[in-house]
Nucleic acid binder design. Sequence first.
DNA 1: CGAGGGGTTGACAAAAGTCAATTATGGTGG
DNA 2: CCACCATAATTGACTTTTGTCAACCCCTCG
Lengths: 248, 248
Amino acid sequence: MLAPIKIRDASLKQIRHACSNCSLRELCLPVGLSRDEMKQVDQLVTQGRPIRRGEYLYRAGQRFHSIYAVRLGFFKTSVISEDGREQVTGFHMNGELMGLDAISTTRHTCDAVALEDGEICELPFDDFESLARRIPALQHHLYRMMSREIVRDHGVMLLLGNMKAEERIAAFLLNLSERFEQRGYSHSSFHLRMTREEIGSYLGLKLETVSRTLSRFQEQGLVKVQNRLINLTDEAGLRQLVSSCVRD
Amino acid sequence: MLAPIKIRDASLKQIRHACSNCSLRELCLPVGLSRDEMKQVDQLVTQGRPIRRGEYLYRAGQRFHSIYAVRLGFFKTSVISEDGREQVTGFHMNGELMGLDAISTTRHTCDAVALEDGEICELPFDDFESLARRIPALQHHLYRMMSREIVRDHGVMLLLGNMKAEERIAAFLLNLSERFEQRGYSHSSFHLRMTREEIGSYLGLKLETVSRTLSRFQEQGLVKVQNRLINLTDEAGLRQLVSSCVRD
DNA sequence: CGAGGGGTTGACAAAAGTCAATTATGGTGG
DNA sequence: CCACCATAATTGACTTTTGTCAACCCCTCG
């Protein structure tokens, strides 16, 4: 989906200097800016702010000022229905944007909370917009990022609308695996940052179903599960489970 | 969601002149542009092209050049999985945009097909983007429209993830009702443009479940169903069903 | 007027949810 | 460092919801 990083070593150093977090640039910001443009972007992005596990970035209903880029950590966004039931709308990691949904109403429409300690960049949206007018690549990049979010959501709709519990969970694990790998972590062994209930909420399943399905996967030798530690022992098998469906 | 139309009669005439379809402007384009800006926007938007029922606007995989604004008619967008299962991602009417998902990959990610004869405006995206740089309100408006799409998708995720068949269908009918009303049609009596199967695909249900649920609603006096003609006879009752996804 | 697509309905099967009991786990304070 | 508590996770028995398969109707269109 994203342009791979193709930066010569020499210029890499420059970029590191201009923006202290490289993966942020790779994932959130366009490549191919001039040095001057990069400097302007960096001035816009406030330095990463540390966030504690359990801390809310924003809550539904709050006034919208900024979008947020995850620099480090693991976040979830969710909408809460009146009776308190939660629908998790996404899990967000390193280099992903949050808060795009709030642009339309100037109020946040969901909650964003850190599932582990992390670091966040805040991008004041008004400033972003006017800067985007002067830097076409930046403008285009935000359109792309929003479009990506729409595509992602369509993928989730497909999952929720068409897939059985096993397929959903297999797809979920593979998706996490891929995203961890993109960030240089192991694709076959990772730690879930969320509870079974949160997984269930995201996938439209009850926590018991999530638990049972993971157990079954383990019996079948597809994964090894130790609480939140996941080992994908048969990725091909998992892929086969979802192969009937489109993945993002 | 959308800013209501607050235009004095005098200027209304001007606008009608500048853009032959008023509801298009109301829904798709920002208000408050100068006459000159409006003229530029209108030059960008090609005149509405007639579209026949069954005709495809674009298909998944095709190269992306333009976004589309529905001027008249009723469209569905859907992704098809490899094994041929369809997930309808949305129904689109008068004044709504389609194709925003394609920006991220420069290829369309879903199919868009007309469910009845209609008329479509094509907006070449490159031109749109550069014009947006010169007209801040236009740039902002597209960000808003994309954000709206994300919010809408989150709503569907909530529906698919948390609601029972009855709740989904009630929510679906009320949503259609509202959108028809916004466009000046009856909110209590309307014609479904899609089959039970397409409704089911959108709502994550089988067509039999859709049919049965509508029959049950009719027995309960909530609606009157004559094939595709729907009469909402107890909107409050429907609304109660949806909000009683509060069941605890 | 007959074929075919869309729609309804019934009987049954499968999937996931609910309730409840039990077992880990991790964080905290003594 | 350990014991304890609250929270998270697992598992089983049973219920509810939805899907599946099949028969049938109805309407339209060629």
